[in-house]
Write a protein that binds this DNA or RNA. Structure first.
Length: 259
DNA sequence: GTGCGTGTTAAACT
DNA sequence: CAGTTTAACACGCA
């Protein structure tokens, strides 16, 4: 459910609340998405001190003082929740119990949220990383014949952009989501690179302001285009919606189509 | 009651 | 064959 800016806020808040604590117990209640044997995971994490938490793409990486890293991907419906002593959530995937009897649970009614021990390094750059700039986009877009929105959503290309923010970014850049990736002119690619950063960073600030302690859910009520409550863009263009790749896409005629 | 929304992947398609 | 597209997952929420 959450997208990059939400996850960025979760990471900040979890850091504040949890870093420095030692894991007393790790319990796995649903191991269907876990590729590591439970015993191995417990051995890697139990008794280790949680150093820090960082967002990577759409995942949260938990770094431990013994060098191990546990990544949590919330997928569509994963939720994090803090508890004292005992976790009472339904649909729990796994739970940490720290040495002060506080705890963190990962739950998902769909069972799709995915924990990964020591994830491999990914090739695709994070959307907010330095590498994901104009030059990178120009090189990659030249190779692709898909719609630009499909490109942005594919985590093998660039990591962290989801359905809602893809629409916001493309509106900001003045590019139609239906534009073909390798038909977009250089000066628009430059705008796209800028928009990715500015839209995501502004959203993070906004969420932090209105929901300072957030560690789960998603806040999207302030979105300008991907928002069923908005009829017009800030510059007055009527907002249309259409399905693209089995997902709803909001856009206006202010965005140029390159085909 | 009813339909929409969110990310990824396996499977289908071109 | 390889690149691209889609349906399915199953519930909470409005």
């Amino acid at each position: 459910m959450p997208e990059l800016p939400d996850l960025q806020v979760f990471g900040r808040n979890l850091n504040k609340k949890l870093s420095g604590k030692k894991v007393k117990k790790l319990t796995v209640k649903n191991r269907s998405k876990l590729k590591t044997p439970v015993a191995k995971l417990k051995k890697a994490i139990e008794d280790a001190k949680l150093k820090r938490i960082e967002r990577e793409g759409k995942e949260l990486y938990f770094y431990f003082s013994n060098g191990n890293v546990l990544s949590l991907h919330l997928m569509l419906h994963g939720k994090l929740s803090l508890f004292e002593k005992a976790n009472k959530e339904k649909y729990t995937i796994l739970e940490f119990l720290f040495d002060d009897d506080s705890g963190l649970a990962l739950t998902d009614f769909q069972g799709k949220a995915t924990p990964t021990l020591n994830p491999e390094e990914k090739n695709a750059p994070d959307a907010l990383s330095k590498e994901a700039g104009q030059k990178f986009l120009k090189d990659q877009l030249a190779k692709k014949r898909t719609a630009i929105k499909a490109f942005l959503l594919d985590q093998h290309n660039i990591r962290g952009i989801g359905n809602a923010y893809a629409d916001e970014i493309l509106w900001e850049a003045g590019i139609s989501p239906f534009s073909i990736a390798n038909k977009i002119p250089d000066q628009k690619i430059k705008l796209l690179a800028k928009s990715i950063r500015s839209v995501l960073q502004k959203a993070e600030k906004q969420i932090l302001k209105t929901h300072p302690g957030l560690i789960s859910g998603e806040i999207r009520d302030f979105l300008k285009i991907h928002n069923s409550k908005q009829k017009k863009s800030p510059t007055g263009g009527a907002i249309h919606n259409k399905t693209l790749g089995s997902r709803i896409t909001y856009y206006t005629d202010e965005q140029e189509v390159y085909k």
